[in-house]
Design a protein around this nucleic acid. Structure first.
Lengths: 196, 196, 196, 196
DNA sequence: CATGAATGAGTATTCATTCAT
DNA sequence: TATGAATGAATACTCATTCAT
């Protein structure tokens, strides 16, 4: 697993890469742009990161790890009840999409540009996340707490709605992350047809 | 990679561009790849299309126009009732995302690579579509047919769910477009808290 | 962009080539520009002229032939006196540079882009012209009518001055070709140090 | 085509560009030819010069600046007398055309291929040079030292004669720059009808 | 740690030209 | 006569990457 190097140059490059990939996409961004934005030379970039691909992978993996930690903590705190668990994972997802809006968009849009070693690790993580969501919804349906007839479609709809937040959320707007999470919990519970 | 009959180069190139942009993204796709895939020379590509940008714009605009026509027809047939109208626009959207899955993904992912003249036209269309959705949800809320407290978030969630279909739908799978539209209408009505 | 009378495609192309070569130079002009300017298709251009090179050669040779005819006529009318002959050839040259200003500039600037068969013919003509000028000046010096000590430099100076006319002459200005020729005859006679 | 010492690429490329532009003209010269002639890669060319246009502009501006410095020094040394000043500027011009024969030809032939920012600067310089010449000739005419009736045509003829030197001068020939300048001073004084 | 100099493969695009109709 | 469709080679330029210092 690639880690983001600590130190002034490394941090500046990571920040510059994040902004540049977000604005122009992986293929549209040139490492010259990134180095210039970081105020460093091209060669300095290669001191910190072995390739453009590595820069992207570091960014995405760091962000995804954050997401998994956020989810795990929330689910550990939530206990076994499907409603609590769905609430927890929706809150964690909304929180992550807002807090790491930019990396989150990069992860969503540019993941397909990751090459085999990184791509496989990411696929595995994604599969695990999907399983986590599916388990929660399935449990709720089995326990007749959720009335929806197509749990997979419900899960897809909730995830899509949460993921889209990163595309439109304005951190300077007047809906804060907590209020937003409340609203999306409500939407999620409606989608699974929560029997309240 | 079949031989293209003389005079049919334009269509072959459009099809090749669609597949290539979908697989690799706008910046990741090279026009050499596109021409090769179409079984024609690079120069033939420029005979039919004035630039790579033009190829992308044509693809996206054609697809978006299709979407608008589909929606307009559905809404004209639906009459004034908000439930009918929401049902109609969700059906039209699901239909479009399934029917033009590939272009639909290109439009969603690569629109930001459109340059000013095309980008502005597209922005305008997107704004019009959003207004259409908002009007429907707002009408339902005003008439107390929909109980949701945050109509804009509801609209965003529904659109995100429908749009995501193009990312995972498998045309060879066992859920057909009509059944899928039924399921998404159900989800949409739940999101707006339809009072049935 | 004038309309092309049927069968006059050749003339339209010659005119278009003249303007385009004059504006952009041989290598800077594209054969597409020329065809478009002539209001014809690319293929029509190739019906009339076998190549871009042929288009340039036709233009230059036509113009050079005109120059030689003008000079020959003037010198035949002038008789044997060196002063008369120098006057005649300067008048003929000024007349040509004004009358065929554009082709004259093309011939001067683009001749080096002519390929072997045409280039050799042109070199031969240029050499003949130089010999004609040199003979006149040498005769004047031998007969002590011209006092200049370096007849070749004198000839070069006169030719350069006359040739430059095509670069600055404004046909809408208030100095007509006859008055201009008078002035350049005066200059030429001073350069050779005419003993008047 | 010797090997270029590391760090000397810029100069080698400038020299190669000078030769290539002189031989084939701006549009006829390809940057591949230039790089190859310099014994460097295409990319090295772009490391040192931002574009083909930039290469041309640098060459021309450098050469023109040389000309202006040469003229200014000569005129400062010459004092106020029109004959001295005309002699000085003719000597400076001949010196420049011989000393920087190749760049001088490039400046004359390829200036029209300069794009707006550079073209405007050059136009301004050219206008200033013309004014300098005109002032000298006008002063001589006003003071009845020069008898010519059309000072502008006289100036044009002198300039054209001097400029043409770069087209035919052979540095291995037997007329050196000083002797040549003497001859052109004589020609110039005759053109303005110097009252000696 | 960091840079200046360099590279080879690749980019989108335009060229003069050809050919079947 | 004339054209619409196509081509291969060339165009200027950018890419990610390397390496000696």
């Amino acid at each position: 697993m690639t880690t983001i190097p600590r130190g002034m140059g490394g941090a500046a490059l990571t920040a510059a890469a994040r902004e540049t990939f977000a604005e122009r996409g992986y293929h549209g961004a040139s490492i010259r742009d990134i180095a210039k934005r970081a105020g460093l030379s091209l060669s300095a970039l290669y001191y910190w990161h072995s390739s453009k691909q590595d820069l992207l992978a570091a960014l995405i993996e760091d962000s995804i790890n954050d997401y998994f930690q956020t989810c795990d903590a929330a689910l550990r705190a939530a206990g076994p009840d499907p409603t609590d668990r769905l609430t927890a994972i929706v809150r964690a997802t909304v929180d992550y999409r807002v807090r790491r809006r930019i990396e989150s968009n990069i992860a969503a849009r540019e993941a397909r540009n990751l090459e085999p070693p990184h791509a496989e690790r990411l696929d595995h993580l994604r599969h695990a996340a999907t399983a986590q969501w599916d388990t929660i919804v399935d449990d709720g349906v089995t326990q007749r707490i959720f009335g929806c007839q197509h749990p997979i479609d419900a899960r897809r709809a909730i995830q899509a709605a949460c993921n889209a937040i990163a595309q439109w959320y304005d951190p300077t707007g007047d809906v804060g992350p907590v209020e937003l999470a409340d609203r999306y919990v409500t939407i999620a519970l409606r989608i699974v047809d929560h029997q309240g």
